[in-house]
Design a protein around this nucleic acid. Sequence first.
DNA 1: CTATGGCACGGATT
DNA 2: AATCCGTGCCATAG
Length: 473
Amino acid sequence: MYYQRQAPHIRPMTTAHLAQTMSLLQLNTLELRQKVESELARNPALELIDEYRCPNCHRILRVNAPCPTCSHNQSNSPEQPIVFLAARQDFYSPSVSSTDQDENSADEHPVQKLSLVEHILRQIGPELPVEDRSIAYHILTSLDEDGLLPINPAEIAQYHHVPRSRVERTIRHIQSAEPIGTGSPSPQDALKVQLETLRETREVPPYVTEAVETGLEFLSPHRSAELARLIGIPISQARQVVRFIADNLNPFPARAYWGEPGRPAVGVKSDRNTYTLPDIIISRVNETEDSPLIVEIAMPYYGTLRVNPLFKESIQQAPEDKSDLWQADLEQATLLVKCIQQRNNTIVRLMQRLAVIQRDFILHGEMKLRPLTRAELAKQLKVHESTMSRAVADKAIQLPNLRIIPLAMFFDRSLHIRSVLKTIIDQETSPLSDSHLAQILTGKGYQVARRTVAKYRALEGILPAHLRLQSHG
DNA sequence: CTATGGCACGGATT
DNA sequence: AATCCGTGCCATAG
């Protein structure tokens, strides 16, 4: 399927190389992993050997990557505090541990991304009693697109002829898996579960529990006034509560990692029931202001992918009729390996640049996002615009604050203004009209037309001024 | 008369 | 070439 049986030597190498690099570049890590797996299964010239470890420190290394501990780092100048670790390979577990049901569905229509069901089963699989597996599977496949359970546990119990308590026990198992709260019957329950889990590791501000229990409908940022009145606390404290909940909890667990609750993230395909893992992870070394950033590129497979040297040697002894085929396989394998390396290289270079340009955004949030176009970055990196587009397409990136957002968000033209707009509205004492908001924004150095303010408002799901509530009283 | 949403146009972006 | 986005104009609601 991946190669035509034509005389391979006629095919111009460069064209094929280019074409394949391009097509690989626009795949995200999971898609690439599937591609590699299918090639591995089909092509005897390709082999996957154990991960390559640094002889001194035993760190797992990407092929050809300098060891970050023993040898010096390539990209670490003092004014650009960024450290690039070797791409990490341990991120995606090998595909052995899936259940029977998964195998079947995967055969029928190849999964593009790890489904939520599979993701959770892998987590709870080990602790889940075997006899509860079918129940868990039943629950997971019944989830709606937000990760909530729309049907009654009693139904499931009846269907499997088991006591209800066993179903509920299984639900609790599922709720405790990432994303926490999945399988809850309602957004409120999901929040409660998340809150409990959070309590184990962190201090939870006062009144958060009350807000979740009674003031659920007032939890959106611009309704803090109503919440304050309901619980009987100052508005400022209500804002903190709302802020805390927005930052740490999510009423729709399955959307947990896609940007902000309730708002579909920018640039995401509207695939339903897919759970997206990051292709790139950024973390920080410490909490100081000038802390270096660690950028990790997730690898699609364990170990080192390479052309099997034995296959290469034995190719002269190929049987007459197979000779062409083997030759084609060999070329295909070499091509794939090269292209994957090139893909990684492109993404690493992209991220090196991006981490410098958008450092403030990565560390301090949306308001600091610097408007940047793909074309601009392409120019700086001296690559073609279409290459940039592909590199950015369909990738997810995890920020140090653990939020996972589409890489495309780094190129949002108006996110920073929208974010400023949000805080203005959040802090307004009486509802401001669009034209007034436009004035304030212009005063702050963001030139936007009144009409545009209206569009941004709509985008953020904020009601027009006359429908917003007075914040005091 | 003011505030806002719909439509459409043109330029930028992909 | 196709799509997205900011903006102006106009109709409508209050």
